[in-house]
């Protein structure tokens, strides 16, 4: 059992490694993608500088906390797209019957699909998050927590996208819906939760999991709370398990597209 898990992890690591090596074939494009994505994210610092000129705090956040929020959103999103980029195009693969090649692999189907692509620009997102925390609010304990929450955030974003993407097993036109739902999560993740009240907060913490992926971790990094910490860890585990279960339930309904294509599309 342990050997099987170790082998599966090795396969995933190799898969991601070769994805990145393939992207690095053109080094100029590879580096441009990473650097420009960091610049692209950096442009939003201007937005927040302008807003903080108008008001000292926004939604109970200082500029440093907003940078922490932005950094965590970017690095979680980045890590998710570095390791599991294919999850975000899962609906198209289901609709077009492109999962065939993964079904015949002697390894775990879901992990094989998830790790079969990497987004180069996501490396820029990932690095940007760490750069932001080092510049604006560096502390060793905070950096450790930030690294941990980057992993939980990436798992929550991936699981949510997997859940939404798996809807395509049941509904024909779900691919656009799942894409927009993932975008909705990212849109909310870069604004302080203090500006939302009532029903919206309920939505952000229970329906779109941005509350536990980003907001709670930011609160924990600002002032540590054991209860909140374990809530985030527990929720990540639960959502991941739910997403995996739904994917395999849906996979039973999958019908082949009869496509003769390799696994690296």
């Amino acid at each position: 059992m342990l050997t099987a898990v170790k082998n599966q992890i090795r396969v995933c690591v190799f898969s991601v490694k070769y994805n990145i090596m393939r992207e690095m074939l053109n080094k100029v494009t590879f580096l441009t993608n990473i650097l420009f994505m960091m610049l692209n994210n950096g442009a939003f610092i201007i937005q927040w500088l302008i807003l903080f000129r108008l008001k000292e705090e926004i939604g109970g956040y200082s500029i440093h906390q907003v940078m922490l929020l932005w950094g965590l959103s970017a690095s979680s999103y980045g890590l998710s797209h570095i390791l599991f980029a294919r999850v975000f195009s899962l609906p198209e693969m289901i609709v077009n019957g492109k999962l065939d090649c993964y079904l015949v692999l002697p390894k775990n189907v879901l992990l094989s699909v998830m790790t079969s692509a990497t987004s180069t620009s996501a490396i820029g997102d990932f690095l940007y998050g760490f750069l932001v925390i080092c510049i604006f609010c560096f502390r060793i304990d905070r950096l450790l927590l930030f690294s941990l929450f980057t992993i939980t955030g990436a798992l929550i974003i991936t699981s949510f996208s997997l859940l939404m993407g798996s809807l395509s097993f049941w509904f024909v036109r779900a691919e656009k819906f799942s894409m927009h739902m993932t975008n909705v999560m990212v849109s909310f993740a870069t604004y302080p939760d203090g500006i939302f009240k009532g029903g919206t907060r309920f939505l952000l913490y229970l329906v779109i999991p941005v509350g536990l992926a980003i907001y709670h971790p930011v609160h924990i990094m600002t002032s540590f709370d054991v209860g909140m910490f374990f809530t985030v860890i527990g929720y990540t585990g639960l959502l991941t398990a739910a997403a995996i279960t739904v994917f395999y339930l849906g996979l039973r309904r999958y019908s082949s597209g009869n496509l003769m294509e390799s696994g690296r599309m």
């Binding site: 807003l51 108008l54 926004i58 036109r173 927009h180 975008n183 909705v184 849109s187 604004y191 500006i195």
Partner: peptide, 23 residues
């Protein structure tokens, strides 16, 4: 398919309405 994009537009505007209401 175009109308599905309304979700993102609605959310973006909703966030900005909340933000400016706060400011």
């Amino acid at each position: 398919n175009i109308a599905m994009g309304f979700i993102s537009y609605f959310i973006m505007c909703f966030v900005f309405i909340k933000l400016w209401n706060y400011i």
